[in-house]
Each structure stands twice: as structure tokens, then as C-alpha cells.
């Protein structure tokens, strides 16, 4: 459904993405792991044109787009097919929770306001915020804000949702509620590409895990492949560092 070929991206002299390929099928939950600075965020941002890649192709069903010089129209089309959940939530501060969710529907997708409100409320209900429709971001906890962020993405009914470390700005006790919501929408068949350091999520929810390092995909496979029998030395080293000593996987 989504295919990325040979993305390259440099910031100044630093080449951050050195030819990344990626294939995602409908219903996939793909988790990207990798050390800090390996280019995970940059990869997601390039897919959503928040960053302009130096070269690379994206194939979205029938639509094939050059990631470097896509037309405004293509960018718009791709953004209609994708949604982004940000590490820092990035909720619209001047809008309440419901307006945050409906903004993209009414303005971005020209859906009638009454219908958008309906969709928006359902999305907020789904993430457990039925009582927070009218709250502004400044009145919500981090976990609640991120759940609004997820509702905002889900409401758009995109082909794929891109998550960039959705829980890493949260206090530890708030991580659970967000992961639960993500697990629920994954179980509904939502296609997701998730950058995270939550190994339990990768293990329990993902059907594919990609390990990135130094701007390339080092290894990819099922959670079992990656966690139990990684082939590459770099993957083993990384896992050893992020997994507790006595961590054992039962899949």
C-alpha cells in the first residue's frame, strides 16, 4: 500500500538518511527502532513532507510521487492519506479538544461541520475523552493531550498513521493510557508506522519491526526475528542496551 524507495536526506553536510526503503501493507503495524540520531524522525517527516527529502520515491497505491519535488497537489493528496502523531502532541493551543479533531475534517477535507462534529466526538470517545470535548490543551494532562492527538489522526480516517515517539514526552505513569489507545486502534486494523522506544508495544502489537541505525535500515523482520534471533551485530548491541538484563521474550 505504501512503498518508499531510496530516500536520501542531508542537513548541511550531515547525511541523515542514506537510502532507506520501506514497504507497508494494509493493516500492518510496523515499529521502527533505533538509537537516537539514527534518522527515524526524519524518515517519518519526509514521508509527510514536513521535511523535503533530497531524493526518493513514494508509491501510495496508484499514486507515485517524487519526494524531492512533489507538486503542491501531490503533497496535499499524500497528506490526505496520512496522519501524524507528534512526540510533543502539537495540539492546536487555540482550539479545544473537539475543534482540534474537527479542524482537519472541516478545513482540510471540506466535510460539513455537523458531520465533522459527529466524527470528532466519536474519535474522542474512542480514546476515552468523552468528558473533555470542550477542554483546551492547557487544561489537559500530557497523556490526555496525546490521546487527543491520536483522535485527531484517527478521525481523518487515513490510510496510514505515522507515530513519532508518541509516549516519550510523557511521565511514566501516563505512558500506559496512550499505549492502550494505540493498541486498540491497531486491533481495529489501522495501518500504523510507529517510532517508539516501548519494546513491549513492539513485541505485543507490531507485526513487523525495523531496526535503523546511521541512516539505513540495518535489519527488519517479525518481532520474533528481531528480538529473539537478530542477525546483525548492530541490532544485537542495540537490543542489549535497551532491554533489561533478564528480559526474556515469550512470543
Amino acid at each position: 500500500m505504501l512503498k518508499i524507495n531510496e530516500i536520501h536526506k542531508s542537513f548541511g553536510k550531515n547525511e541523515i538518511l542514506k537510502g532507506v526503503d520501506l514497504t507497508i501493507d494494509k493493516g500492518d503495524v510496523v515499529v521502527i527502532l533505533g538509537p537516537s540520531g539514527s534518522g527515524k524522525t526524519t524518515l517519518l517527516r519526509c514521508i509527510n513532507f514536513l521535511e523535503k527529502a533530497d531524493s526518493g520515491m513514494a508509491t501510495f497505491g496508484e499514486l507515485q510521487v517524487n519526494l524531492h519535488d512533489a507538486s503542491k497537489k501531490d503533497i496535499h493528496t499524500i497528506r490526505q492519506k496520512t496522519a501524524f502523531v507528534f512526540q510533543n502532541y502539537n495540539l492546536f493551543n487555540n482550539k479545544n479538544a473537539l475543534e482540534n479533531v474537527t479542524e482537519g475534517l472541516v478545513i482540510g477535507r471540506k466535510i460539513h461541520k455537523t458531520k465533522a462534529t459527529d466524527i470528532g466526538k466519536k474519535a474522542l470517545d474512542k480514546v476515552g475523552l468523552s468528558d473533555k470535548y470542550n477542554s483546551y490543551p492547557s487544561q489537559l494532562s500530557g497523556g490526555q493531550q496525546q490521546r487527543v492527538g491520536i483522535a485527531r489522526a484517527v478521525a481523518l480516517n487515513p490510510d496510514i498513521i505515522l507515530f513519532d515517539e508518541p509516549t516519550s514526552a510523557l511521565d511514566p505513569e501516563l505512558v500506559g493510557e496512550v499505549l492502550t489507545v494505540m493498541k486498540n486502534i491497531a486491533n481495529e486494523g489501522t495501518t500504523m508506522l510507529v517510532v517508539t522506544h516501548e519494546m513491549s508495544f513492539a513485541k505485543d502489537v507490531a507485526n513487523r519491526v525495523i531496526f535503523m541505525d546511521g541512516g539505513v535500515v540495518v535489519e527488519e523482520g517479525t518481532p520474533h526475528d528481531i528480538f529473539i534471533s537478530p542477525k546483525e551485530e548492530r541490532t544485537k548491541k542495540f537490543l542489549k542496551r535497551v532491554l533489561p538484563e533478564d528480559y526474556t521474550f515469550y512470543i
Binding site: R79, A83, F84, F92, E103, I107, G108
Partner: peptide, 20 residues
């Protein structure tokens, strides 16, 4: 991030500036 979030939900630059 405010501008980026607006773009990511499909607002044009102009709409993002005017509304957010």
C-alpha cells in the same frame, strides 16, 4: 509544531496561518 500539525491534517499554509 503548530504549523506542522496544521499542515499534517491537510490545511494549506495560508489556512494554517489564518486559523492556527
Amino acid at each position: 509544531g503548530q504549523l506542522e500539525a496544521a499542515q499534517s491534517v491537510g490545511l494549506s499554509n495560508l489556512q494554517a496561518y489564518l486559523r492556527i
